[in-house]
Design a binder for these strands. Sequence first.
RNA 1: GGGCUGGUAGCUCAGCUUGGAUAGAGUGCUGGACUUCUAAUCCAGUGGUCGAGGGAUCGAAGCCCUCCCGGCCCGCCA
Length: 628
Amino acid sequence: MSFKSLIDEIENNLHKILDGLSISDVSFSVEPAKSGFGDVSSNVSFLLAKHLKKNPKEIADILSEKYKQSQSTLVSKVESHPSGYLNFFANWEKLNQLILSESNLDEFGSVDLGKSSTIVVEHTSVNPNKALHIGHIRNIILGDAIARILKKSNYKVNILNYVDDSGLQVADIIVGFRHFGFALQPPQGKKFDHYCGDDVYVKTTEKYEKDPSLEEIRKNILKELEDGNSETAQFADKITRRVLENQLETCWNLGVYYDCLNFESQIIRSGLWGKIFEKLKELTLIEFENEGKNTGCWVIRGENNEEDKVIVRSNGTATYVAKDIPYAAWKLGLLEDPFNYQKYEKMQPGNHVLWQTTLMPSSEPKQNFTGKKVITVIDSRQARLQKIITTLMSKFKSAEDAYVHLSYESVTLSADTAQTLGLNTDGKQAQMSGRKGLYVNADSVYDLLKAKTIEETQKRHPEMIDSDIAKIAHNVSVGTLRYEMIKQDLDKIISFDLIKSLSLEGDTAPYIQYTFARASRIIEKSMRTPSLDVDFSLLTDKSELDLIKTIGMFDIHVMDAAKNLSPKVIARYCHDLAVTFNSFYEHVKVLDLGDEKLENSRLCLVNSFKLTLEKALNLLGIIAPDKM
RNA sequence: GGGCUGGUAGCUCAGCUUGGAUAGAGUGCUGGACUUCUAAUCCAGUGGUCGAGGGAUCGAAGCCCUCCCGGCCCGCCA
């Protein structure tokens, strides 16, 4: 509970005081104070000012007097500020001990929002016809961080990746291989997914543009893909699985793992659509159109002024949105599961087992990857379609918010980076496009970052062996990439700039990681094991108390991040922790003080900082290096 | 035209959900700090009509309304 214990204590006492004055129904705030205004502040007097028609300062005076009589163990002083705020000062001797000892526990920062319930997080879900680009990375990193935060909040999280292996985009590269003579082997040194995206896909779509009559070939291929037994479908399956494997390698390299892979082709062949179609009709969520422009179609009526949405075409086939309905229902466990499960051919790093669905018999036991709640991470361009799914799911399931579309703005290319790729945009940012070859592959960004961080690390540690340098550079590169994707608000566009993304200073992961390395170094040099058996009352310097306070704030931020599905809250917290530690580092020394008791107390604090920052960074999938 | 969304310092962004105390960071620019636990660091200075206008409020960057500017989405494509 940490710092929250203090807040809770104050809140309880204030409630008792208000009860004593027979005032209820006032939802005042009790929050960490701005610096210079004590440790915790409450706005209660402002709110009472309305009821009592007195000015806030007078009320604050009365309340602070009353508060002095209430039982409090963690508050040392109450002050009524001339502004009307009620400011509380902590009893640091007690709070120091409380926070620092709790921070040594593994579950420090954990909150019980989920109550052990199951939740599905679906992210990534990239067409298996190309390599992952920097835009996909935002989705992947966001989804991964959300999953980590939810785990910390006592949810049982199932992480899914939906592989759309039967769409038009796949058909396009199959056309390339089958009709335009692209070799099955990529040129030397090129990953297969890069080859499919950069060469086969881009050049094949170029050909359509020049000769629209080729569209006929594409249509035929798409038709053949739908029949799972066709030779084309089997060929496509081989290709998409090769691409998928490469895509997964990119994800794994970034420390992203999944629990299960779902394949669109299997969902189509499973017959789930038929079942959900019947259910939709039964519940009259869709209607058959007898007249107008959608004659012969099944549609969902548009709400308000929105147009009706066609779900089943007049030729009886399901549209794009429609295909998402059975999957959404499956994720919520609303349908009988038609799938068997088998392990993916490759083991994920760290021995995380990856399952995949299959329609073939399997010797493995049946698995369950559904959840009471479902979070689908897709960018905001799909908001309209996702709203349809969300509405439908809320009608299927009693819980209103069982299905959540976690929307985020897309990643665009900065004008400079677009220029580098050969597109002049007149100083404007540009939307990425796989079809036009206008994107930056994730692997390339990682490679550039790694080359730069290797160079930096070598400069600092000429004595270090190459494999150690590579390890540090890897952690810093992944950290940098992840942090850049997470620190920004979800509904703000990230304008990706190749040059600026290589910055390792300021509000970046390396800044935070470096701070961690500094702390590690102190402990390493002390030649001691930090212990909790120290005198906490020796920690009285402002920079020490600030650090303890910030450490104690961990769970508050985890709760905030989990409730609002907002990983940036954790990113800001990590940065905050690092800034506070750096201030501590500049203000007070830890070693060679000639006072062993004080040294031990400070070592204990440094260690608490380390443990907390490591846990917080872990929620973002960023590794805290002991040396860099 | 309708829907969603952004507009805060030269640039990139926090803060807005839950209205209150001097609107915060980073970056840039200027200057300073390594014989010291790692300078991927720290300190100081510089820089703001919180898009505009109106409203309710003792009090608005935040709430309500109108407007302006940018982005995205609106197919029996996927």
